[in-house]
Amino acid sequence: MLKDVTLGQYFPGNSFFHRLDPRIKIILMLLFVVVTFFAANLVSFAYLVVLLGVMIAVSRLRLGVLLRGLKPIMVIAIFTAFINIFWTKGEALLVQFGFIHIYAEGLWRALFMVVRIVSLVLGTSVLLSYTTTPMELTDALESLLSPLKKIRVPVHEFAMMMSLALRFVPTLVEETEKIINAQKARGADFESGNVLQRAKALIPVLIPLFVSAFRRATELATAMECRCYTGGGGRTRMNQLKLHAKDVAGLLVSLFILTAVFAFNQIPLPFGVL
């Protein structure tokens, strides 16, 4: 159950996306998110779906893994689709049943919302979380945000906090699973009862989890101090990020591909299709 959480999970590989400079990947991901929100008609959404297909093919990630990552957001997607179908008012009435009115616009909008949500999750995971190690990710963030150091933003500290947080996601997931299993072995029941009973059933999991999270934090702080960590000043790195010509080329080509959506938005479509 918890193994489905794919946040901060890296799948080793050697694809184009794996090799691309992580800073470029972050920029592209932000752009991808923006473009997804700007897509406004059927043509641009179809384009988005094709683009996503190509990205997945290039990344050489397994489809099963990607689909499993979608599971947690399926509820949100279905819920939004539902709201859009029943609450959108338009001109082309399709179904009328009592107080229920379904318009063609609502169906289109629901479809677009689902495509949008799915492509947001898939796009960001292909571009970033599945193909970038947490270390690369934080180094890239630190490098991208480094201009903020001029106005005394503790960029290094933020990046370190983020990398530590990411580092501990799988550990905590594993720990949670272990504790759940241990309490199950002691006859704890997490699957039946009403909401209140279920929430209460989580206490035997949450308390040990917090206790061990604090213990880990203390141990980590001690270990870092023992290795003379004092913050960002004067720290050097083992892997320096360097932009290569092909990274820049990749960025430019991707920019062109992504901004094409704005052009597609201008294509007029026949009646009834948004």
């Binding site: 272990k178 241990a182 072995a185 035997p204 308390i207 040990p208």
Partner: peptide, 20 residues
């Protein structure tokens, strides 16, 4: 399964982390 767990008791590795 609940019945099974009553019949087969399992103590995990480092079980002290399950105390609450």
């Amino acid at each position: 399964l609940a019945g099974i767990r009553a019949r087969v008791g399992l103590v995990f590795q480092y079980p002290e982390y399950q105390l609450f």
